[in-house]
Nucleic acid binder design. Sequence first.
DNA 1: CTGAAAGCGCTTACAG
DNA 2: CTGAAAGCGCTTACAG
Lengths: 365, 365
Amino acid sequence: MTAVDNSVEHRPTLAAVAARAGVSASTASLAFSGTGPVSDATRERVLQAARELNYAGPDPRARSLRRGRSGIVGVVLEERVRDAFRDPIKIATLDGISEELGSIDAGLLVLTEVAGEAEGDEKNPVTLSDAPIDGAVLMGCSPRFEESIATLRARGVPVVAIEGNPGDDDIVMILQDNREATRRGAEHLKALGHTRVAIVALSLDRDHRRALVTPERIAAGTSATTLERLAGARDVFPDAPAYTGAGSYVEEGRLAALELLSGEASDRPTAIIAQSDLLAAGVIRAAEELGIAVPEQLSVIGFDGVKVDGLWPYDLTTLVQPAAEKGRAAGRAVKAMLAGNDVASRLFTAEFHEGNTTAPVPVVE
Amino acid sequence: MTAVDNSVEHRPTLAAVAARAGVSASTASLAFSGTGPVSDATRERVLQAARELNYAGPDPRARSLRRGRSGIVGVVLEERVRDAFRDPIKIATLDGISEELGSIDAGLLVLTEVAGEAEGDEKNPVTLSDAPIDGAVLMGCSPRFEESIATLRARGVPVVAIEGNPGDDDIVMILQDNREATRRGAEHLKALGHTRVAIVALSLDRDHRRALVTPERIAAGTSATTLERLAGARDVFPDAPAYTGAGSYVEEGRLAALELLSGEASDRPTAIIAQSDLLAAGVIRAAEELGIAVPEQLSVIGFDGVKVDGLWPYDLTTLVQPAAEKGRAAGRAVKAMLAGNDVASRLFTAEFHEGNTTAPVPVVE
DNA sequence: CTGAAAGCGCTTACAG
DNA sequence: CTGAAAGCGCTTACAG
């Protein structure tokens, strides 16, 4: 393999370009930024000089210092990249943010709250506390949430939180009607005659345990999203047993469903409310394995409205949350805050989608 | 919802902190950076003053200008965020990059080559040509590849390309033995007695067509990865028909396999080589639908070695590529280049994994 | 261990 | 339309 030379050459500066073009630095600057009035002839002379010197344009570092803006918005993930990006909702949200932040969808600095052993590390000084960001979007609530906000606040960086714990702070939030939406889904099941309903839940906290949900676990739960959706389901089915998966994955849904569907046909649930579409897909897989027909013998309902790849021929009954729109709203909120405007929090509504995975409760003969 | 006040306050400066602590700016700077020797008493005085003034630390923008480094590395995607992140290999690679770039896995600026209508846009000046990045990793080859490299080169930004077209430029590359690895997989099938083998391929170009592969399409193909894997399969099975999916998704694999498996049992393929694990998962789904048992009646082999969520009980026979390691290598390469070292390109090897989706060719009775 | 000075490369009022 | 000047906030040799 060829070794490539990467000696750091001396980059030319705007001053050098200006000198060669025979104009002042101010004029050269104007020629590049397109601000202020410059005669075509002069601009051309400057650009020509730049070409000759192989000058690629103003140094963004200097520009940010002078302008007091870097043009970069941080996206703070609560887990490492690999985990965060397995969640299609997070990706859709990220996509929405980037879309709003510039049609070139650029300028997103990915940061994580996974600090810890960062100390003895090499010098990568880009952390929440010293990244050159103009604003930040916090994705999801987490134990470090408060800390992150405090850090950012102290730096004067505007913050928007997506699905944080409401009332955490007087911070701009992008929220979701998790409880109400789940309740709507549950009512759909009720209307179909279901009474034996079980819940496959997301993680209640950072432990990511696979286990039955108990009142103790609920009391200790830290994930607002999980708790809200759980409450919504139990608004309609107060006694529905719930089992948490170790994450929002098909395989976790499958494992949870295998637990919940293990009983006799006569007393196993006739419907399962999953807290995400991926979990719901796993529930369907488990049902297939056990020879339980969906939706004839088991109704399944999800949450998210993402197209689960490979789920065909099922069209999942679910609550479609406007993930990309939430991202765009977050992006817009950051922009507005940067413009110095007051910004209000927003509550989004998930829409019920009736697919082909729910049906009337089977008649017992 | 409450509106939050975000008036941009006047942030204190290091100079203000120094003044309050009764020391020079130099000393205050030292107190924060931990470089140079400062007496404990002095440092404490500085930090105290900072606390009193609510100073959160040196401004990263000024620091980058002075140091000539921003601490940020750009990751250039060839498509928009939402598409790039549906590929588990890209995510694993990204994770490897971020891991290497700092254990806090921070400092990754996501950029895309999707320019186009960026002109009339609001001022988000963060593009490939003016992002404050110290280095860049190009993820995947693309038509704009050359252009991106040129832009970055002109700026003096060190570039590492993952799976670009080799020989594109004298650029540092992280490559993969796509052809040889696929050939190894094909030879495994041959050893099992298979002769009627078909290929489900990734996209050949940006068209993302679902169609049979023809010599013309190969000649016009721009995706090195697809072409290399195709060549590897045909090294062993020169006449194997190939069908391209519109992307690396389970559903695309399913559709392609439905085409390829449509014939009579007596002349349909007994084995399918898929160019990604997601495609392979789709092939398995299609086989299930058609009542073709895997691996008894159809052997399926993938590429990537990602755990496809929800594929249980299948353990896919595949070529495991070291995606995270490739990312780490890219990260390390960028770091080395920033340190002024010469860096060589690297070629990675995918390892054959024999799962339970391949078996001897069925006996025809 | 501490301070005075220079300067990173640009942009932006301000004059003309 | 163009230029001279100041300064964004910091860090880094260099002296002491």
